[in-house]
Simulated assay, not measured.
Amino acid sequence: MLSSKSFARAFVPVALVALAAPAQANDLKSVEASLSATQSMTANFVQTDGKGRQMAGTLSLKRPGKIRFAYGGGVNMLLVANGKTLSFIDYDVGQKSSWPIAKSPLSVLLSPNPDLGRIARLVPSDNPQVVVVRARDARRPEFGTLVLAFIKSASAPGGLRLEGWTAIDAQNKKTTVRLSNQRYNVAVPDSAFTYAEPKRKKA
């Protein structure tokens, strides 16, 4: 079990982006293999924004292209991708924002054919059990950056357990997601990626 201090270093890459070393092909291939072998996943998550505000909930993922963040604690919001479109729904205000998955940092996680060689770099870690990858398409910087943190685990797909990530959008806003209770390649119905349309609130 990694100490909290060691695991925290897995997310230091947000502050060390400029120090990212050239990717080693074998390590990136291992990450690609892990992503490809993850056909589905469920987990608990804690999401922290750039101001330190936290929300928790449950995550469902089904590749390619599907993910759902169901927030708990009375938070009446939903983030869901249905295979083509990523949508954020705020039921309290009755609004929905949508954009193509391919234009989101999460496209790295949800791509049907992960190919990190052109867009990814390894980030140095002082813990040999931790693998951190920073993915950013220099040709399309407006799509943002995703920094993925894995821990080596023989029981996880491809020998790497996804522990979380930091998404950095084009406005440099950072959102960190930490996972727990990960379950891989379990049955996740397609209905998990549907949602009720929000009702617009009257002024």
Results as ranks from 00 to 15, higher is better:
T42I: 15
R178L: 15
S4W: 04
V46Q: 10
S155A: 14
S6T: 01
Q54H: 02
A149Y: 12
R136H: 11
G52I: 05
A170D: 14
Q171Y: 13
Q95Y: 00
F88C: 00
N185Q: 07
L61A: 04
K199V: 14
F69T: 01
V188E: 09
R136S: 06
L162P: 01
G159N: 06
P124E: 04
K5S: 09
V80R: 11
A154S: 11
N127M: 07
T38D: 02
L148R: 05
K152I: 02
F45P: 10
K152R: 14
V75T: 15
I151Q: 10
D137M: 07
W165V: 03
K66Y: 04
L146G: 03
A23Q: 12
P157G: 12
G65F: 12
G65A: 11
R9L: 04
N181W: 04
V14W: 01
A135H: 03
A10I: 04
A154W: 01
A120Q: 06
R136A: 11
K62D: 09
G74Q: 12
N172Y: 02
L106C: 09
F193S: 03
T166F: 06
G117V: 02
I151C: 09
G65Q: 10
K66G: 03
S153T: 05
V147Q: 04
R200I: 09
W99I: 04
K201S: 14
A203E: 03
P157M: 13
G117L: 08
D27R: 12
G158D: 08
T166M: 07
K51I: 07
T38F: 05
Q182A: 13
K66W: 03
T38L: 03
Q95A: 06
L61G: 01
F88P: 00
M77G: 00
R63M: 11
V108H: 09
Y91H: 11
L35T: 00
Y91I: 07
M1R: 06
G65S: 12
S104M: 06
P114F: 02
D27E: 15
S180N: 09
A25E: 09
M1Y: 02
I67M: 05
S3H: 01
G74F: 12
S34V: 09
L19R: 08
M1Q: 05
A56F: 13
T166H: 06
Q54K: 15
Q129N: 14
D169M: 13
W99Y: 13
A37G: 05
A20I: 01
A81H: 04
G65R: 08
T166K: 10
A192R: 13
K173S: 12
T42W: 13
T145Y: 03
R121H: 08
D27C: 02
M41H: 05
F69R: 00
P198A: 13
S180W: 05
S104F: 02
S191W: 11
K201N: 10
R139I: 01
L28H: 08
R68S: 15
A135L: 09
P128N: 14
Y184S: 10
A18G: 11
R53Y: 06
G52F: 07
G50V: 07
V147W: 01
G94S: 08
N172S: 14
Q39T: 10
L35F: 05
